[in-house]
């Protein structure tokens, strides 16, 4: 049995009267790809926000590799090895593809109180960035402004930035959202190839992708985890059928 990498204990978050995260307990194992599925507004993004340090939980704690990281802010969690993509693409539109990734490399290459040398002339930033840009298949688009990339390319770029921080734990919020079929297939293939080397928390509506990628799944409904298990267990779970999965999606 693999080690528990991320241990979420009794997490709660309310927006006014709305309980967006309702006493969530969840253990993510080192090296697994764990999908979180659930209907719109179930609280999936809110959960990732708390794990990444963008949102402060009302109660509960988050333990990473045995350490309580609940008090740490987002930059500090990034340095612990957390990396997230956003549901709405979050990149630097007025910088080139390569600049975007080089910035993520820079964030993990010591402090940036270096005032004189041009960052774009530093091989220590540009070379690793270029490798990752090529790895995600954007090599030919390295010098294009990110604003001018197609939507699917921008989502690939965001994954490249996330990888450039050399994370231990990847949290992807609907990486396939808004992609065409072909782009989605490429992204699924890419994630398949990442899988195993990294621990991945994947939020995704595309059931095909989820059942292909996930080692285990959790189903979130109204902020509450109603089931956790392997894809087979989840398919067979009557409560999940009732609460979330449409009958035809199961076949």
């Amino acid at each position: 049995m693999a080690e528990v990498l991320l241990d979420i204990r009794g997490l709660c978050k309310a927006f006014g009267a709305l309980q967006a995260t309702d006493n969530v307990h969840l253990q993510i194992l080192e090296g697994e790809t764990h999908a979180v599925i659930g209907p719109n507004g179930a609280g999936k993004t809110t959960l990732i926000g708390q794990l990444a340090g963008n949102l402060r939980p009302d109660a509960g704690s988050i333990h990473f590799s045995g350490e309580d990281i609940t008090p740490l802010d987002a930059p500090a969690r990034s340095h612990k090895g957390f990396a997230r993509s956003f549901q709405i693409t979050s990149i630097y539109p007025e910088f080139t593809t390569l600049d975007n990734v080089a910035l993520a490399v820079q964030a993990h290459s010591g402090h940036s109180f270096r005032f004189w040398r041009a960052a774009r002339d530093e091989p220590a930033l540009r070379e690793p960035a270029r490798r990752i840009v090529e790895e995600v298949g954007l090599g030919a688009r390295a010098d294009v402004l990110a604003a001018n990339l197609a939507h699917g390319e921008q989502r690939q770029l965001e994954v490249a930035m996330v990888l450039a921080t050399r994370p231990r734990m990847l949290m992807l919020d609907e990486p396939m959202a808004g992609m065409g079929t072909e782009e989605s297939q490429r992204m699924i293939e890419f994630l398949t190839h990442l899988k195993g080397g990294l621990t991945i928390l994947l939020v995704e509506h595309d059931m095909d992708a989820v059942f292909r990628l996930a080692d285990r799944l959790s189903v979130l409904v109204y902020g509450r985890i109603v089931a956790t298990g392997t894809p087979e267990e989840i398919r067979a779970n009557p409560e999940v059928r009732k609460a979330y999965l449409g009958e035809e999606e199961l076949e």
Binding site: N54, A83, Y92, A107, F113, F115, R117, T165
Partner: peptide
């Protein structure tokens, strides 16, 4: 000119462009 093209300058420009992303990749 040197400042804004240095590592330092890239951080303040990145933070202007997209603060959430900048914090998420590890800059304060």
């Amino acid at each position: 000119h040197r400042l804004v093209h240095s590592r330092f300058g890239m951080v303040i420009r990145a933070a202007k462009s997209n603060e959430a992303r900048t914090r998420a990749i590890g800059f304060s």
